[in-house]
Amino acid sequence: MDIQEYIESGILETYVLGAASEAETRELLYFKEKYPQVQIALQELESDMELIAEQMAVMPPPGTWGRIEASINELTTVPAYEPLRLKDAGGKSGHHFKTPDRDYIEVAESESTHMTIHKSWKWVFAAVFVLGKIFLGCAIYFYLENRQAQEQIQELKTELRQNHLR
């Protein structure tokens, strides 16, 4: 096969765009290993692709990196008993994409400490919070009631003392 003719056939462009069939890809990767011209031509085409991507570049919203960083932190430490689930595994390329949709709330995270609790605990926390508020309300109510009663007792004592003096 004339390798120059192969390079000129447009198959390299097809491969670089990801539009080549599996058989074409296999063949091309074989020629890439065998002929340095193919490798050089591919590198040039990859540079061309980068050029067009640069032309079409659009800055992502300002908070995007922050969100990526937060997700990386979340994935850095995971509980040993809960492996990350795979979403839509398989496919022709064999890629597996992990999703962070675990059934756990990340409570705190830092380099040295990390705590993960089950979501069901949120109802316990909510109940404790509501009960705490109720107890606080009761305590204030009874404190005020008690203070009022004390004042009334004092008044009655004063009245009794005055009546006694008369």
Binding site: E50, A53, E54, M56, A57, V58, M59, P60, P61, T64, W65, R67, I68, S71, I72, L75, F97, K98, P100
Partner: peptide, 28 residues
């Protein structure tokens, strides 16, 4: 990121969705 966002935007035509895909890809 700008190249990736521009590329994905052309496919999904939605800024929020494109941003989410960029985040996912960098995570993967």
């Amino acid at each position: 990121s700008a190249m990736l966002f521009g590329y994905i935007y052309e496919i999904v035509r939605d800024n929020n969705l494109a941003e989410q895909h960029v985040i996912n890809i960098y995570n993967y």
